[in-house]
Amino acid sequence: MTHRILITGASGFVGSALVQLLERDHTECKVFAFGQGQGQKHVVDLQDMEAVDKAVREVQPSAVVHLAAVAMPAEANNAPRHAWNVNVMGTMNLAESVMRHTPQARFVYVGSSEAYGASFKSIDGPVTETAPLLPTTVYGATKAAADLMIGQLAYDGLRAVRFRPFNHTGPGQSDAYVVSAFARQVAEIVSGKKEPVIYAGNLEAKRDFLDVRDVVRAYAISATLDLDVDPDHVYNLASGQPRKIRTILDMLIAKSGIDIEVRVDPDKLRPNDIPLVWGDASKARGRLNWSPLVPIEQTITDIFGYWHQRCNAG
């Protein structure tokens, strides 16, 4: 069987990794990559209901992996109405088009662990999929709202799988995210382009880090497996091993072989920062036979290598 997989947000960090994985390891798949990047073959504005409808009708996908979103929390904070329009109404446009034109298609919705928000403070231990969605940020709220909407549409017949991935990173990620930001600074110091000082925010916060290559493997599994119709197809993607931000930074500094000073920048401290974020992915292990395979050490090595190469190339 040839799978016809439509990917929104295909030009982004995660979307690009998913396209590469499918084209390399799933030759039975025909990939339709929709993104906003320069040179993209397929471009669609999720807020344009007619354009979304036309795309789904023409592609006739057997699966849709919905990654497109206002994904940077700072961007969502700066333009909340736009974030709600894209992340919620755009998701509704896409889901309704799938139900209208390809009702047998799998709909893979990529949410976020940020939807749990305040639940991390009240739950002792790693968060499971049954934890309340209590988002504390604009981004988390939009992802929680779309998550609940897709869950409701699953009762109306949408063949949905919902993911709540925890922090994931890897080579090629924007330096707007913490691990990539540190890696870039360390690479610039090694290349002699920056003084040996790194400015950081809260280094004591603990986060559950994953490699993007593990995360997209879960999306590929859900898009190609013949899963039953069940509104309970909602899965955390997590390592179950929270690490201090300081630990990640120390690993990167060790790669440099240089004595680098770390200074706390008050402007980088967030007033509502949650001290501990970690998840339980046993449901994904049991139902999807998924578990993270890439060691954190490999992830750190590859991210540093990516930025070191970029710095040397100018």
Rank of each mutant, 00 (worst) to 15 (best):
I189Q: 08
N167K: 05
Y219W: 07
V56M: 02
T130R: 10
Y235R: 08
D273A: 15
K41V: 10
V197W: 11
S180K: 08
R246M: 05
L22T: 01
V88C: 14
V262A: 05
T27L: 07
V43H: 13
G305L: 02
V43A: 09
G140V: 02
P271W: 07
A144Y: 10
V229L: 13
D147H: 12
T137W: 00
L252H: 07
A76T: 03
P132Y: 05
T247W: 12
D226T: 14
Y199F: 15
E75Y: 14
E129Q: 11
A79Q: 12
Q185P: 00
R243F: 01
V294T: 13
S11D: 04
G314D: 01
D25E: 12
P242L: 04
V64K: 08
E195G: 11
L18I: 08
L153Y: 15
G192F: 13
A115R: 03
T2C: 00
A220L: 08
A145I: 04
G279F: 02
P73E: 13
Y306W: 13
G12K: 11
G279D: 00
E261N: 11
V86P: 05
A313I: 02
A160H: 13
Q20V: 03
A218H: 03
K143L: 10
I303F: 05
D265A: 14
D156G: 06
A281I: 01
G90S: 11
A115F: 02
R57H: 08
T224E: 03
I300Y: 01
D156F: 10
L237K: 09
V161F: 08
Q40I: 00
S112G: 04
A131C: 00
N167W: 04
W307H: 05
K54D: 08
M1F: 11
A69Q: 12
K121A: 11
D250I: 09
R164E: 03
D48V: 09
L133I: 01
T169R: 07
G117C: 00
N78H: 13
T136A: 02
S16L: 09
G151A: 10
A284D: 04
V19E: 05
P61R: 10
V212A: 10
A220Y: 06
A76P: 13
A33D: 09
H3M: 09
W278S: 00
V64M: 08
L6E: 01
N93R: 03
A74M: 12
H308K: 12
L276K: 12
C29M: 05
S291M: 02
F163D: 05
F107K: 09
A55T: 09
V197F: 08
V31S: 10
V59C: 11
K121Q: 05
G240V: 00
S113V: 05
A76H: 07
F182I: 10
K30M: 10
A205G: 10
G201S: 06
L148P: 00
Y116L: 03
D259G: 06
E114P: 02
F166T: 04
G39A: 08
R310Q: 15
I274S: 06
D53W: 02
V264C: 07
N93K: 11
D250F: 06
P80W: 04
